[in-house]
């Protein structure tokens, strides 16, 4: 199912580039352009790629849900589930890094951790949708029915994601960069940061791939040892 040599190659590349991204992200002195951001602009290398990894993971999950409904092969359902779980973890980290960043830049003096910013609300809602997906899986015993219904809910949620992420936040006021009337982030930070940011995108998506394939292998082995499950 999984090509082990390819897996090792990607894993080693991810290990190397993740080390480089961490070191460069923390240590390289970038010029500060915006006074409010200060050194917190380094969070760019983690917060944004985490969201990219979440989106990639949700995409993989929805794709395998679709493949399951088309083919009826339970391996696709297993992959869909594992992709959703790993992506969920990335999304949680995306929210937490966002909370720290927002506290430092938006409302330090107010002592708040949560501002009900539309971006925060929508992100939390998206994670709630996938939490509901896990609850649904837990309440269905029979593997084929579980796979079918969970895949259907997964795709139903995927259909509504554009509404959550792109339509509704544009109708509410937000402090998030890139929202209506706010400058895009590239105007606030030094151009040199792109040299770290772009590799960071690939690295975090690669990290998702490494964890995801590893979990799929474990799940396949578990299924082989207990064929009835």
């Amino acid at each position: 199912m999984v090509n082990v040599r390819r897996y090792r190659l990607v894993r080693n590349i991810v290990l190397a580039t993740m080390t480089a991204v961490l070191l460069a992200g923390m240590l390289v002195p970038f010029p500060r352009i915006d006074d409010i951001l200060g050194q917190t602009h380094r969070n760019l290398f983690f917060h944004v790629p985490l969201w990219f990894a979440l989106m990639a993971g949700m995409g993989v999950s929805a794709w395998h849900a679709y493949r399951y409904l088309k083919t009826g092969d339970l391996v696709h359902d297993l992959r869909s589930n594992e992709a959703a779980r790993v992506a969920f973890a990335f999304g949680l980290m995306g929210i937490v890094t966002g909370m720290f960043w927002a506290r430092a830049t938006w409302y330090e003096s107010a002592g708040l951790w949560w501002n009900n910013d539309p971006k925060q609300l929508m992100a939390a809602t998206q994670l709630m949708v996938y939490a509901a997906y896990f609850v649904l899986r837990g309440s269905l015993d029979e593997p084929v029915r579980r796979a079918r219904l969970a895949s259907a809910y997964n795709l139903f949620a995927a259909i509504l994601v554009p509404l959550l992420l792109y339509v509704v936040p544009r109708q509410m006021e937000s402090l998030h960069p890139g929202a209506e009337g706010n400058p895009a982030f590239s105007n606030l930070t030094a151009p040199a940061m792109r040299l770290v940011l772009y590799p960071a995108f690939a690295t975090f998506i690669g990290l998702f791939w490494v964890i995801y394939t590893q979990r799929v292998r474990i799940a396949l082995l578990e299924r082989r040892s207990e064929p009835d499950l």
Binding site: L121, M122, T125, M128, V129, A131, A132, V135, L136, S139, L140, D141, R145, L149, A152, Y153, F156, A157, L160, L163, L164, V167, V168, Q171, M172
Partner: peptide
């Protein structure tokens, strides 16, 4: 969603869990 949960364990309690997160855009508007 009620077709989805018709055969799940604890079906009736599951409906709000599945329903409320997807309703957020509708509720806001």
């Amino acid at each position: 969603l009620s077709a989805l949960i018709a055969r799940a364990q604890g079906g009736a309690a599951l409906l709000p869990v599945l329903l409320f997160p997807v309703l957020v855009p509708l509720l806001l508007a």
